[in-house]
């Protein structure tokens, strides 16, 4: 996507970079909406350009918001735009809802190249179309140069709860089988590979993906799914710890069963990091009644996002609130939450 591909790019070409006026509510703002946002997200609600969208909803909804500040904005396997759509779509889906509508709030830094914004917005549009959600309302603000990092995106999502779905961390139950939908740590390591000062050549790509279709199929199996969680920041270790604490149950995982891409594993070795603590953007951890594990696995594996789905452990009624791992050598150790961001280490 280049500036040439826009539907009606002429007025925007006069401004190769974002200026303060693009957030000022005047003509420049209107041009941005008319020539970029509406063509990209075009739909009935948005084209009305009213102050708010009006939605017809029935039953319970799932409602979630997230803000995206990833740096760099473009990384192997994705960009901040598709991440912002997929992230919120996934959060909504993790409660057993069908994601339907999104809002998009953009905070742009003065000087952001218009062409980059074009690429990001169109990437959002593609991700939304793929996930089957509609962007119905949005907002753009511009901050002075030096007061932002190019672009921040907030997305808020609404989904319609599926009948009878009751999926939340508190439902983790001793005996549950724990499934992950694929390899751990891809996104975090893809970002690390292009991070200033740490760059390395690798084929690692972010796993950024919308999981709602896969989750839909998992729930369609009728399997008794107790918890779904997307292990983003803090990685698998953080998600498991949060669930163990919320449900007051123990978690025991087999370290050898955790799927990790070879290259991601090598990058982790090089930087002294543990893939269990590295972020994912297109994976789900599922806690499922033991008898239904095969059905759930089958549903996951039928999707490209879930071909590497596998069982990694189980819920116990011992060591409540604690996540433990059986090491490849056969001993048990505790997998705690990281205090802060995991940093590359020399020792």
């Amino acid at each position: 996507m280049t500036i040439e591909d826009w539907t009606c790019p002429m007025p925007l070409r006069d401004h190769p970079r974002i200026v303060m006026g693009h957030g000022g509510g005047g003509q420049l703002s209107a041009e941005l909406i008319e020539h970029l946002f509406v063509p990209a997200f075009g739909n009935g609600e948005l084209t009305e350009l009213a102050d708010a969208a009006v939605l017809d909803l029935e039953g319970s909804i799932s409602f979630s918001t997230d803000t995206f500040t990833v740096h760099p904005r473009f990384f192997p396997g994705g960009d901040i735009g598709e991440l912002a759509i997929n992230g919120t779509v996934n959060d909504v889906a993790m409660r057993g809802a069908v994601p339907r509508y999104l809002s998009v709030g953009l905070v742009l830094e003065e000087g952001l190249p218009m062409a980059e914004l074009g690429v990001i917005v169109n990437s959002m549009a593609r991700a939304a179309a793929h996930a089957g959600v509609t962007v119905v309302t949005g907002d753009t603000k511009v901050v002075d140069r030096g007061h932002g990092d190019g672009i921040y995106i907030n997305t808020t999502g609404i989904g319609i709860m599926r009948d009878g779905a009751d999926i939340r961390p508190q439902r983790a139950t001793p005996g549950d089988v724990i499934i992950v939908s694929g390899t751990m740590g891809d996104h975090g390591m893809a970002i690390m590979s292009v991070r200033e000062g740490l760059e390395f050549e690798a084929s690692i790509r972010s796993d950024s993906a919308a999981l709602n279709h896969m989750i839909g199929d998992v729930l369609d199996t009728g399997g008794d799914v107790h918890v779904l969680r997307d292990p983003t920041r803090g990685g698998l270790a953080a998600s498991l710890n949060e669930i163990a604490t919320a449900a007051d149950v123990g978690v025991l995982i087999e370290e050898r069963s955790i799927p990790v891409d070879r290259t991601v594993a090598a990058a982790c070795e090089m930087l002294g990091m543990d893939p269990m603590y590295v972020a994912n953007e297109g994976k789900v951890v599922a806690f499922v009644a033991a008898g239904d594990a095969d059905r759930v696995l089958g549903a996951m594996r039928s999707h490209p996002e879930g071909v590497n789905a596998t069982i990694i452990g189980e819920v116990t009624d011992t060591h409540r609130g604690v996540v433990a791992a059986r090491t490849p050598l056969g001993s048990i150790r505790v997998v705690d939450m990281q205090v802060g961001e995991q940093l590359p280490r020399i020792c």
Partner: peptide, 22 residues
């Protein structure tokens, strides 16, 4: 502090002695 600092290592991986019964 450090991941391999003796205290952090004990805290992280060895704090829950009852686990040995697992």
């Amino acid at each position: 502090v450090s991941a391999e600092g003796a205290c952090a290592a004990y805290y992280l991986y060895g704090r829950f002695k009852e686990l040995e019964a697992t």
